[in-house]
Design a binder for these strands. Structure first.
Lengths: 147, 147
DNA sequence: ACAATGTCTATAATAATAGTAGACATATAA
DNA sequence: TTATATGTCTACTATTATTATAGACATTGT
């Protein structure tokens, strides 16, 4: 029951963009370096986010990518759904038609509970939350070094 | 972020056993038929559950498999963990050592939140809960037919 | 003894994942 | 207006995971 690298890399890339929000466009190359993700693979991950209008991009010199909205307006659930598809552990949760047993299936009820729990966490976490946690950690680390 | 057929089939098989708890051993063949799972594949799914002592088996004529404990003492989290491994969306949650960034990674914190939410649902659901829900559904359907 | 069970190990087909690569489109600045 | 710095699109490939199927074996009741 793992999330793939696409969802994970997307999350890291979006956090990177959130930490640079409000400035000039960010180069994919720089995200690639900072997050240790191959540029070519990163492109494929950013692309659907652009299509979903969560990220905007500009080409050419001085181009790059930026968040389309403020970090507090972007929920992690959106990002994950774009890269991973529906947030549910089993397809029959969102699409009962694929299984004739769906209506009487108790297992499906549990998978639905599980889906809701997962969704709840991702829905209540924004990029801003991530950026703030990051900032807090960084500050914590600096304090440590100064002791 | 899907659960595989192994975890899903295991859940259905265990529910099947829960519904027959307290009786004679149940044939894998019968579970296979009722749950529409190939016998050969079902064997591979039950086997680790036997190894984990959640299921006991007896060979030979009149043999079969049974729950090792009453349904209310078996949590779904146990079953899933046996078939799917740790309940977490990313390996670094349970094993931080695999990633050098783990200690400073904010994404990992979210994956940890997610893991906890998932675990919570599966930990609080027992086979007895499943069996009861099933029974309730069955009764509901019969009532419908009698109207 | 034999038939009815579960067990173990190997193999294979298919699909998903995780990338790599090349050609292309667009925008800026000299 | 041309060179260059960007992002975009599509195709391909290697590896791994999933989802089984199959054969030989072990055990036990009658």
């Amino acid at each position: 029951m793992k999330i793939s690298t696409r969802g994970r890399y997307a999350t890291r890339a979006m956090l990177d963009l959130a930490l640079h929000y409000g400035k000039t466009p960010i180069l994919l190359k720089d995200i690639s370096t900072r997050q240790a993700i191959s540029l070519r693979y990163l492109e494929q991950i950013i692309s659907p986010l652009v299509a979903a209008k969560i990220v905007v991009s500009t080409r050419g010199p001085r181009g790059g990518v930026m968040l389309a909205r403020p970090p507090r307006k972007i929920k992690l659930s959106e990002v994950i759904q774009v890269l991973e598809g529906p947030i549910s552990p089993v397809e029959c949760v969102e699409n009962p038609g694929i299984c004739t047993r769906a209506s009487s299936c108790v297992a499906r009820d549990v998978w639905t509970d599980l889906a809701r729990a997962m969704y709840g966490v991702l829905e209540s976490t924004t990029l801003q939350d991530l950026a703030e946690r990051q900032e807090k950690k960084r500050a914590g680390r600096e304090l440590q070094y100064n002791i």
